[in-house]
């Protein structure tokens, strides 16, 4: 792609790029991948997937998004739309792991990972690592991918109450870890 063409594409809005992609312009779609790739990969890593697997899943999600780009009407953000596709693809992979599935269903029995220094203030990625698998997955789905509790329950094929329980406990633990000593989450910057 020429520098001029790339400059032209980089000046377009996501909805315009999606329109071009819908007419078969793969370079326009490439610009969308450039803009939203990092966010999608980060979300998948936050859901508990390894970096390499997250990249594979993110690639598959973008290919699936290109195949169904005509369904994107620009009513919501393109990034949010792709994140949902990626999150659902991640869940499908999780469903194949029977042991993980059993742990997700056992909401009340889950114990979070032990932290070396529970009183230390940490960033979101670090704090998420301290959650139990189910909590981490449900919190990421609901607050990272923008799924409602009901949508997350349907996608995970779990009872709504189990998902709500995971989210509640996950949020409580995140709050404690992100702002451990009466500090607030407001004003936190530079989360990686």
């Amino acid at each position: 792609m020429s520098r001029t063409e790339r400059h032209r594409l980089s000046s377009l809005h996501d909805v315009e790029l999606a329109g071009l992609a819908a007419s078969g312009d793969r370079q326009a779609f490439g610009e969308l991948v450039r803009r939203h790739g990092s966010a999608v990969r980060s979300l998948l890593r936050r859901m508990g997937v390894s970096a390499a697997e997250a990249d594979d899943l993110a690639q598959d999600a973008f290919i699936a998004a290109f195949e169904s780009i005509a369904e994107f009407r620009g009513e919501g953000a393109f990034g949010g739309w792709v994140k949902k596709i990626a999150a659902r693809a991640c869940i499908r992979r999780v469903q194949k792991d029977r042991q993980l599935r059993a742990r997700l269903e056992a909401a009340e029995l889950q114990e979070p990972a032990v932290l070396a220094d529970p009183g230390r203030r940490m960033d979101l990625d670090e704090a998420l690592k301290g959650l139990a698998e189910g909590e981490r997955l449900c919190v990421s789905l609901c607050y990272g991918a923008g799924l409602s509790h009901a949508e997350a329950a349907e996608a995970l094929n779990l009872p709504l109450g189990t998902v709500k329980s995971h989210v509640k406990r996950g949020l409580d633990r995140l709050k404690a870890r992100l702002a451990p000593e009466g500090d607030t989450l407001e004003g936190r910057r530079g989360n990686g």
Partner: peptide, 17 residues
């Protein structure tokens, strides 16, 4: 509610890789 919004904002802040 504020915690939820704050967590959402933290999720939305993603540095470019």
């Amino acid at each position: 509610m504020e915690v939820e919004r704050a967590i959402e904002r933290l999720f939305a802040r993603t540095p470019e890789m």
